[in-house]
């Protein structure tokens, strides 16, 4: 079966016009961010769905054959998850029979460098000790001129 040029054009126009409605019917899952550096992330979906029939699956394989956890959904259209270690995770919404009902999304968890965290920790500890000295032991803080007395 072949189409004339005019028929192809008409078909294209019809598809263009109906495409937003087709998209709107699909359940779309989207992560707040695909690269996570703190182990916590949020996922949103675009439709109000029944929370006792649908579940959120998170797996560490794209085929979803090794599930990390299955979460109950809520009516707010968003879920906040936390405590993830480094790795690549895949999420999707499934119905009670386990059939996929949304697009799968990928979240990569890559925590910040521990060496940087320790440097900032040491920096914070140093600043804190200096503050204590400044308030409680001003004579040790060396911000006086020689011989200056502590203000009364």
């Amino acid at each position: 079966m072949s189409f004339s040029y005019v028929e192809k054009l008409l078909l294209l126009m019809i598809l263009t016009l109906v495409s937003p409605f087709v998209d709107a019917e699909g359940l779309k899952l989207s992560p707040e961010s695909q690269l996570v550096k703190e182990g916590y992330y949020s996922l949103r979906w675009n439709k109000k769905i029944s929370n006792d029939k649908w579940l959120l699956q998170v797996a560490d394989t794209p085929e979803f054959n090794r599930l990390v956890k299955t979460y109950p959904l809520n009516l707010a259209g968003e879920i906040a998850l936390s405590g993830y270690s480094d790795g690549v995770f895949f999420a999707r919404i499934v119905d009670s029979g386990g059939a996929s009902q949304s697009n799968p999304v990928t979240i990569t968890v890559h925590h910040r460098e521990l060496s940087m965290a320790f440097k900032l920790f040491a920096l914070g500890a140093g600043l804190f000790i200096f503050l204590i000295v400044l308030i409680f032991f001003p004579q040790l803080a060396r911000v006086y001129k020689a011989g200056e007395k502590q203000p009364e």
């Binding site: 550096k37 703190e38 182990g39 910040r112 460098e113 965290a117 920790f121 914070g124």
Partner: peptide, 10 residues
């Protein structure tokens, strides 16, 4: 937990 360690003194 790196980000949490950073958070402490912050």
């Amino acid at each position: 937990f790196p980000a949490a360690i950073m958070f402490l003194f912050n």
